[in-house]
Simulated scan of single mutants.
Amino acid sequence: MNEPTSKPWYREFWAWMVLAPLITVLVVSSITVSIAVRHADDEVRDTYHKDSRMYHFSAEQDQRAKALGLAAMVQFQRGDRGVVVELNGNTEYPEKLLLTLSHPLEEDLDQHIVLSQLSVGRYSGSLPVDLNNRWYLRLMPELDPELHKNAEWRLKGEINFDLGEAAPLNAASR
Results as ranks from 00 to 15, higher is better:
residue 171 A to H: 01
residue 96 K to P: 09
residue 29 S to V: 08
residue 117 Q to H: 05
residue 32 T to S: 13
residue 22 L to T: 00
residue 61 Q to A: 10
residue 39 H to V: 10
residue 116 S to T: 11
residue 23 I to G: 15
residue 172 A to G: 08
residue 116 S to V: 05
residue 5 T to D: 13
residue 3 E to L: 09
residue 145 P to L: 03
residue 169 L to F: 05
residue 27 V to N: 12
residue 117 Q to R: 13
residue 107 E to N: 11
residue 62 D to E: 02
residue 167 A to R: 03
residue 42 D to C: 14
residue 114 V to T: 10
residue 30 S to T: 04
residue 59 A to Q: 06
residue 17 M to E: 01
residue 146 E to F: 09
residue 92 E to P: 05
residue 84 V to C: 02
residue 133 N to C: 05
residue 60 E to N: 12
residue 89 G to N: 04
residue 171 A to Y: 00
residue 133 N to I: 00
residue 173 S to H: 03
residue 81 R to T: 01
residue 145 P to M: 07
residue 36 A to V: 09
residue 16 W to V: 05
residue 126 S to V: 07
residue 87 L to M: 04
residue 19 L to D: 10
residue 143 L to Y: 00
residue 35 I to Y: 09
residue 110 D to G: 10
residue 13 F to K: 11
residue 24 T to V: 14
residue 34 S to I: 04
residue 107 E to T: 07
residue 26 L to M: 13
residue 32 T to M: 15
residue 78 R to D: 03
residue 157 G to I: 02
residue 6 S to Y: 06
residue 167 A to W: 00
residue 133 N to M: 10
residue 15 A to Q: 11
residue 157 G to Y: 00
residue 102 S to Q: 09
residue 26 L to Q: 11
residue 68 L to W: 08
residue 154 R to L: 14
residue 174 R to G: 12
residue 7 K to I: 06
residue 31 I to A: 14
residue 151 A to F: 02
residue 49 H to I: 06
residue 80 D to I: 12
residue 30 S to W: 05
residue 137 L to N: 13
residue 61 Q to S: 13
residue 118 L to A: 05
residue 19 L to V: 08
residue 58 S to E: 01
residue 171 A to G: 07
residue 118 L to S: 10
residue 134 R to G: 01
residue 58 S to A: 08
residue 30 S to P: 11
residue 118 L to C: 09
residue 5 T to K: 15
residue 62 D to W: 00
residue 133 N to L: 06
residue 20 A to L: 14
residue 114 V to Q: 08
residue 1 M to Q: 09
residue 43 E to S: 12
residue 136 Y to A: 12
residue 111 Q to E: 05
